[in-house]
Design a protein around this nucleic acid. Structure first.
Lengths: 268, 268
DNA sequence: CGACGCGTTGAATGTTGTCAAACCGAGTGG
DNA sequence: CCACTCGGTTTGACAACATTCAACGCGTCG
């Protein structure tokens, strides 16, 4: 899910040796990896593998996982990956684009439960139920890997490191959600928005993108919904941040001018 | 906790939470199950097994699980089960009493992340990390089962239904946390408190305890912290509910007078 | 062009937090 | 036995922050 502001001392990002060293290498333009929406890409070749794959997996294990992963055509903006009420049978990993997960209460009022960026896994809340209890839509053209859950369960039995990895992924989702709850219960509008921006910035950095300049894939309404604020409040916070020289905002384009100031606001 | 300390002169002694309800079950007095804090109890004999064990487990499988479960002496009120920063090696199931899980931010301000009642599993947020990132304390005299996580992982490989069960447990925790986030982001103080009361009532019902009358194991401060409210607000809500004939409140003793009204408030 | 979605800004309202005081029961020590 | 403290809880008065309601700007698309 969303807010993963990893505190320094917890940060377990051991730049893995061996198999996935090429995460930082430059792609050649004509390589079949050049298009992030490419359906044919395998797990072993995926730029995101260091984010969504268990670091411990051997090459042949990655191939086994690869065999059960399904890659469909990209989703267009506003297309559903799954809907609340659909039968649950898969979890998903974002390969490109951005995904919004949300629930709807009895009156149909939407509640955004998370934004997922490339390398992140979503749909795990469906595991406890036979049906999905949330929906997921694409916020922009996105490609996702679909991982049939029963296949994953089977494979986890023969690949202990995969089992461990998925336990960890789910645990991470739990702590993320708890962070969100903490944020909502304790922090002001300014702090919430600052935290979201820092989170997105940090997640961009993990993908070797700029942490200063990026484009928000979601609307102000989505941000407000997620952070427990109204659109108006979100808009005001952006204006205020701009006035305080913390940000440069142009619609969805964000430039963080004062990272330290923003982090201070977000209590990092 | 509540059971041992029988207050000398309390008015309408409510059906006690947790342990006392034993009186109503068909246990023989000399059975080793008569004390809910009994260390010797096995999973197969545990009243909570239908809540915390995978229903699909065969008897011999339960015995295997039983072998890895550790049962220590009961925890007294305010005793820590684990502390933030402790090395993570186990998850826990509540057998009796009540547990509060919480994190602390850099300034040491507490944030309650959950209350756990008998039959419920906690500590799963530590799985993604090498250390616990939250703490857990006993709110009253409580006994817990400790399940070494690496043993559980091993066993999960030979018992697929156990693996599935723990995937589901974690997924359930995710959806719980998301519900909490939704509650915090969308609902008023009244709605939040009503929701908590309904939740506790329902969890009591699962354990065959009264859903109308129960004792809250946590303080007003804990409730407020958990629900993103101040103590004062929580107190006012209780007073208001009482004035509206929804509740009868006597300190921590709660009687729900108008279940439907309360559920309506909680949007159930 | 006009309608619409999205974002911004302003003014008024209100729920909740803050500060302060007091209560109550339990435990302690004179 | 009483006075005392202490933690947890309750209540009141006031202020603050976010919401609500309203209007407007801007770009896109029919």
């Amino acid at each position: 899910m969303g807010l993963s502001i990893v505190k320094p001392h917890v940060k377990p990002q051991p730049l893995q040796s061996g198999s996935l060293s090429f995460a930082s290498t430059k792609m050649t333009a004509m390589s079949n990896q050049s298009c992030p929406h490419n359906q044919a890409m395998s797990c072993g070749d995926c730029r995101m593998k260091s984010l969504c794959l268990p670091l411990a997996l051997e090459i042949e294990d990655v191939e086994k996982l690869d065999k059960i992963v399904q890659r469909g055509r990209p989703f267009q903006k506003d297309e559903y990956i799954y809907r609340s009420g659909d039968k649950f049978h898969s979890i998903f990993a974002v390969r490109s684009g951005a995904i919004k997960a949300f629930t709807a209460d009895d009156e149909g009022v939407e509640q955004v439960t998370g934004f997922y960026l490339p390398g992140e896994v979503f749909g795990m809340d469906g595991i406890a139920h036979t049906d999905h209890i949330s929906s997921a839509v694409s916020l922009e053209t996105s490609s996702v890997c679909e991982i049939p859950f029963h296949r994953l369960e089977e494979l986890s039995i023969t690949l202990p490191s995969l089992q461990r990895h998925f336990f960890k992924l789910m645990s991470q989702e739990i702590t993320n959600d708890q962070h969100l709850a903490t944020l909502l219960s304790k922090n002001s509008a300014d702090e919430r928005v600052a935290t979201l921006l820092i989170s997105i910035s940090a997640r961009n950095a993990k993908r070797n993108l700029s942490e200063q300049r990026f484009r928000l894939p979601m609307s102000r309404a989505d941000i407000g919904n997620y952070m427990g604020l109204t659109v108006e409040t979100v808009s005001r916070v952006f204006s205020r941040f701009q006035k305080q020289q913390l940000l440069q905002v142009d619609k969805k384009e964000i430039e963080i001018l004062d990272m330290d100031g923003l982090k201070e606001l977000a209590n990092i």
